[in-house]
Simulated scan of single mutants.
Amino acid sequence: MSRIRILLADDHPVVRAGLVGLLSSQPDFEVVGEAANGQEALRAVEQLLPQVVLMDLRMPVMDGVSAIRQIRSRFPQVQILVLTTYDTDSDIVRAVEAGATGYLLKDVPREELFRAVRLCARGEAVLSPPVAARLLGRMRGPAEENLSLRELEVLALVARGLSNKEIARKLKISEATVKTHLLHTFSKLGVDDRTAAVTVALERGILRL
């Protein structure tokens, strides 16, 4: 029987050790390597060519989303299953857009994890029920979350304390355009000013400092 070759990428040694023990209980799984950050994961994929990478999102040196993007562009045959404690809309969407095949939360039952690894190895998308619900809610939800990339860029610069004039200069657009983007953002978030926009965006996970 050919076994599914798995690489673990997580910055917590205890988590990795637990996953090794868990996955090794399955006769069709083989854990071929471990990585403590995204950069190590990328190097390990080059050397070991696993079928499935179990990837955490928040890691030092290179985060999970950056690692997913690089692995998928260089090794499109490698499937990536996100296994994380983070379930904000922005985390989920960024991981899926980067090329993750699946997205599970760390409190997932072991049988569901095993099933997800097997499905991912076949290239089938897997989302744990809470994650699927979040994504569906986002797709069906009001426009408040659907800020354009430019609106997000402007808001991120507002969060860093830049004035409209400085933002205009940095993004090479007019001040009037900056104001227009901010007005659209205020409308979508249901707020009246810059501070409230940043606060709400941070609370909802749309923006991260």
Results as ranks from 00 to 15, higher is better:
Met1Gly: 15
Arg3Leu: 15
Arg3Pro: 02
Arg3Met: 12
Ile4Lys: 07
Ile4Arg: 11
Ile4Pro: 11
Arg5Asp: 02
Leu8Pro: 06
Leu8Asp: 05
Pro13His: 06
Val14Phe: 15
Arg16Phe: 08
Leu19Val: 00
Gly21Ala: 13
Gly21Pro: 02
Leu23Asn: 09
Ser24Val: 08
Ser25His: 04
Pro27Ile: 03
Asp28Cys: 00
Glu30Gly: 09
Val31Met: 10
Val32Gly: 14
Ala35Gln: 05
Asn37Gly: 03
Gln39Glu: 14
Gln39Trp: 00
Glu40Ala: 11
Glu40Met: 11
Ala41Tyr: 11
Ala41Pro: 02
Leu42Met: 02
Pro50Trp: 09
Gln51Asn: 06
Gln51Ile: 06
Val52Ala: 10
Met55Cys: 09
Met55Thr: 12
Met55Ser: 05
Met55Leu: 09
Asp56Trp: 05
Leu57His: 15
Leu57Gln: 09
Met59Ile: 04
Met59Trp: 10
Val61Ala: 04
Ser66His: 11
Ser66Ile: 01
Ile68Val: 01
Arg69Val: 00
Arg69Tyr: 00
Ile71Val: 14
Ser73Ala: 15
Phe75Pro: 03
Phe75Cys: 10
Pro76Trp: 10
Gln77Ala: 15
Ile80Ser: 00
Thr84Pro: 05
Asp87Leu: 04
Ser90Leu: 10
Ser90Phe: 07
Ile92Phe: 10
Ile92Ala: 07
Arg94Val: 00
Arg94Gly: 04
Ala95Trp: 04
Val96Trp: 01
Val96Cys: 03
Gly99Gln: 09
Ala100Cys: 10
Ala100Lys: 04
Thr101Val: 13
Gly102Met: 13
Tyr103Cys: 08
Asp107Tyr: 06
Asp107Arg: 04
Val108Ser: 04
Val108Tyr: 03
Pro109Met: 12
Glu111Gln: 15
Leu113Cys: 03
Arg118Lys: 12
Cys120His: 08
Arg122Gln: 15
Val126Phe: 09
Leu127Gln: 03
Pro129Glu: 03
Val131Leu: 07
Ala132Asn: 02
Leu135Glu: 13
Leu136Thr: 11
Arg138Trp: 06
Met139Pro: 00
Met139Trp: 13
Arg140Cys: 01
Ala143Arg: 10
Glu144Leu: 01
Glu144Lys: 05
Glu144Tyr: 12
Glu144Thr: 05
Asn146Gly: 01
Ser148Gln: 10
Glu151Gly: 07
Leu152His: 11
Val154Lys: 00
Val154Ala: 06
Val154His: 05
Val154Thr: 13
Ala156Glu: 13
Ala159Asn: 12
Gly161Val: 03
Gly161Pro: 11
Leu162Gln: 10
Asn164Pro: 12
Lys165Gln: 14
Glu166Gln: 12
Glu166His: 00
Ile167Cys: 15
Ile167Asp: 07
Lys172His: 14
Lys172Ser: 15
Val178Ser: 04
Val178Tyr: 06
His181Val: 00
His184Phe: 09
His184Ile: 05
His184Asp: 02
Val191Ser: 05
Val191Trp: 14
Asp193Ile: 07
Asp193Lys: 05
Thr195Leu: 04
Ala196Pro: 02
Ala196Val: 01
Ala196Gly: 10
Val198Ile: 09
Leu202Tyr: 03
Leu202Gly: 03
Arg204Asp: 01
Ile206His: 00
